[in-house]
Each structure stands twice: as structure tokens, then as C-alpha cells.
Design a protein around this nucleic acid. Structure first.
Length: 421
DNA sequence: CAAGCGTGGGT
DNA sequence: TACCCAAGCTT
């Protein structure tokens, strides 16, 4: 195209006699592509225009692990309300948080505010013009420091985000899976970075990754570096970057207990607020451990006091019995199985658990899990043990049920239908 | 250095 | 549907 050669011709590759470098990627080719396909983004200065460091920084913080589409309206709101770093620094944190609400990763908003104040108090209201100083500010890591330095100040810095990592991994067919490959990828990207237009080069690299060199089905036919791309020449560009071997962890097993009352409600409890599936709803289970003694699974099943003839009120004995049994449970952390509870106290009902045929399998990030499922039918007035509650069948859909627990309930349900058929 | 941190969109 | 994952940083 016509615009393509506009800047390229100025300082395209040095003396090298023309064609020698044909197999080596060059910044000029990417910059030429960028000049033709440059996307207009709200925080991006017009070609040739100087960028506002405040806007660059604000956008980069918002864009951390967040899509362009999600950021756009928030960026506009922030810029409208706080047009510069001093205005933002003067704002109450609560207002910043409120305006950030919905964008996620709220530590970013706290750091954003702290950073604005640091810039005003320690840097005279101007963002420092070098990577190291930027890196020391709240919420600014290696990537953001390099991005601001390059884009706002046109310093020869090389931000490496997920896009750049993918592009470079393909360009050089880097076999090391991330994050171990990070130093190598940074070094390769750094070597490619031109001394002029470093900001454009950084954005070009990210645009390339976002639009052509995508994680799945990259559009290699349109890529300015196609003929220089090692992965393309191999014919397996989409397999880079290499996936780190999924440590599947050790298989854990356990049992889940689906207690259903005659009105259809199901017994559930809420997991601890932190940790695996924190705060989510679950049916009672045993521990999930590599060593699972199924013979004793029922020892850990929930226990019910007999329904009171007169109504719903409990006695002190009921509470004691319930909490004592509950107290035997621990986090599902693979710790040794706790000792068996004491013999049933007077008044506790022997629940008839039936084993549902089959196994529910699930894979977490850290380990695969297999749960045997037990089900029991209980009288209408049965009280929930301490720490547990009955959820009407119609309300189960509104519970914070992780997929694992949906599987467990579906498994029990399916089996019911089979039994009746 | 692995894990935690939110959310919405794409496949 | 159920993941994958997106312009990362912090502890």
C-alpha cells in the first residue's frame, strides 16, 4: 500500500545489502504493518501526537488482565472525572473504588490511587521518565513500567505481556514453556526493539498478538513476519507458546452425601470463605484425600436428630449432638483421616444411606477428584445439623453451586430416575 | 515462586 | 456447557 513505505524508507534496515536478512524478523516490517493497521483506541494518541503519560498509565493499569472492551467505558469515566494525576490524587479513595466497581481486581484501584498520590507527593506531579523509578510505584510491575516508558516517553523499553510472549514464542519457536521462558522471551523481544519508535513497536507487537497472532487459529497469511516466523515455517504456529506440563496432582477420593427431605429440599452447607471453592455451596462430603477408606465413609455422613413430634424447636441435646459430629470435619486438604466419632448418643437417628452406582469425576487445577455419592431420604421435619441448611429444590439453581456439586446432584438425580424406571 | 485476585467474552 | 483466557501485580 501507499502509506506503508512512509516511515519505513527513512531508516529501514541499515547497510545490509538488501536481501541477506530475509529470514530474520525486523522491527521495520512490523512498524510498517502497524502504520497500516493501527487501531484507534481511546487512550492511544493520534499518529505523531505526543501521549499523555497519565492516560497511558491509567489505561495500562486498567488493561491488566482485562479486555479492551471492558476497559473502554471505565477509562472514559475516569478520564472525565479525573482528567489528570493531581485530580485523581485529590479524590477520596472511596470514590475511586466506587468508580472502579465492576472492573475487577480491586487491588488495582487501591494501587492506582496510591500511585497517583505518590506521583504528586514524591515526583512533583510528573510520572518519572525511566523504567526503574516507574517500577517502584504502587501497582506498576515490569510490564507496566516498560509500557509507560515506551509509549509515553518513547524510551527504548520492551513491555512483555501475554500477546508479546505468544508472538515471540512463535517467531523463534521457543520450546521452553512459560513462565520459565520469560527471561528468554524478554531477551529476544528486547533485541528486536528499535531505538526509535519503541512505543509504536510495543503497541504493534501487542496489536499483532491481539488481532493476527491469536492463541487459536492465528491468521498467519496476513502476518508481516510470516516468512520470518520459525513456528510458521514448522507448520505448527498454534502450538506455541508451549503449555507448561499440567501438574495434575495426585488423585484424591472421597464421598458426597445427598440428603433429600420428603419436600424435595436438599441438605447443603457453605464452604469456608477462603481456599478451594471458597464461600461456595456444597453438599456434605468426607475429606478429599489420596487415601480414602470407603468402608468408613458413612462415619463422616451427616447425622440427624429425630424430628420433634411437636414442631421445629430444638433441644440442647440436639445442638450438642449436631455440633459434635460437625466438629469432626476438617478442611478438604488431604490431611490424614480424622478419628472416628464417638458412638451415637441417645436420640440420634440411624440414617439409611444408599450408594448411588457410578463415580463423579472432576478435575481441579491442582488435582483430579473422584467422589462416590450416597443418597438418603429423610422425613419432612428433619432438622439440618449444625452448620448445614435445607435448600428447597426450586432454590438450588440460585445457590452458588460449583460445577463439581452440580455434577454430584445431577448424578444422584439421574440415578433416581433410573431407579424409578 | 506458586497462589490469590474479578469479570466478561470467546469457543 | 465448561473451560480458556485477557495490555499483571503482589505476597
Amino acid at each position: 500500500m501507499t502509506l506503508a513505505g512512509k516511515r519505513k524508507s527513512k531508516k529501514s534496515s541499515p547497510p545490509v545489502s538488501g536481501r541477506e536478512n530475509k529470514t530474520l524478523p525486523q522491527a521495520g516490517d512490523l512498524l510498517a504493518w502497524y502504520d497500516r493497521h493501527r487501531r484507534a483506541l481511546p487512550w492511544r494518541a493520534a499518529p505523531g501526537q505526543r501521549s499523555d503519560p497519565y492516560r497511558v498509565w491509567l489505561s495500562e493499569i486498567m488493561l491488566q488482565q482485562t479486555t479492551v472492551k471492558a476497559v473502554a467505558p471505565y477509562y472514559a469515566r475516569f478520564l472525565s472525572r479525573w482528567p489528570d494525576v493531581r485530580a485523581l490524587a485529590a479524590a477520596p479513595l472511596a470514590e475511586v473504588l466506587k468508580t472502579w466497581a465492576g472492573l475487577g481486581y480491586y487491588a488495582r484501584a487501591r494501587n492506582l490511587h496510591a500511585c497517583a498520590r505518590a506521583v504528586v507527593e514524591h515526583h512533583g506531579g510528573e510520572f518519572p521518565r525511566n523504567e526503574d523509578a516507574l517500577r517502584g510505584l504502587p501497582g506498576i510491575g515490569a510490564y507496566t513500567a516498560a509500557a509507560v516508558a515506551a509509549i509515553a516517553f518513547d524510551i527504548r523499553a520492551t513491555p512483555v505481556d501475554g500477546n508479546v510472549e505468544r508472538v515471540i514464542a512463535r517467531l523463534y519457536a521457543v520450546e521452553t514453556p512459560p513462565p520459565a521462558a520469560k527471561p528468554e522471551i524478554y531477551r529476544l523481544a528486547r533485541a528486536l526493539t528499535p531505538s526509535r519508535r519503541a512505543g509504536d513497536f510495543a503497541q504493534a507487537l501487542m496489536d499483532l498478538g491481539a488481532t493476527l497472532c491469536t492463541p487459536k487459529r492465528p491468521a498467519c497469511a496476513l502476518c508481516p513476519w510470516r516468512d520470518r516466523c520459525a513456528a510458521y515455517r514448522r507448520g505448527d504456529a498454534e502450538t506455541f507458546p508451549r503449555r507448561p506440563p499440567k501438574r495434575e496432582g495426585v488423585l484424591r477420593r472421597g464421598a458426597a452425601f445427598v440428603a433429600r427431605r420428603s419436600d424435595g429440599s436438599v441438605l447443603v452447607r457453605t464452604r469456608p470463605a477462603k481456599g478451594l471453592l471458597g464461600g461456595m455451596t456444597e453438599v456434605p462430603t468426607t475429606e478429599w484425600a489420596a487415601e480414602f477408606d470407603e468402608a468408613n465413609a458413612l462415619v463422616h455422613a451427616p447425622r440427624f436428630s429425630p424430628p420433634l413430634p411437636g414442631g421445629e424447636r430444638s433441644t440442647s441435646r440436639d445442638t450438642i449432638a449436631g455440633s459434635r459430629v460437625r466438629g469432626k470435619r476438617r478442611q478438604n486438604s488431604g490431611l490424614p483421616v480424622p478419628p472416628h466419632p464417638d458412638p451415637l448418643p441417645n436420640g440420634e437417628r440411624e440414617t439409611c444411606w444408599r450408594r448411588i452406582p457410578g463415580i463423579v469425576r472432576h478435575v481441579f487445577t491442582h488435582f483430579p477428584l473422584e467422589l462416590k455419592v450416597y443418597a438418603a431420604d429423610l422425613p419432612l421435619r428433619t432438622r439440618a445439623p449444625t452448620g448445614m441448611r435445607w435448600v428447597a429444590s426450586a432454590d438450588i439453581a440460585h445457590e452458588a453451586l460449583p460445577s463439581l456439586m452440580r455434577k454430584v446432584l445431577a448424578h444422584a438425580q439421574t440415578s433416581d430416575r433410573i431407579d424409578k424406571a
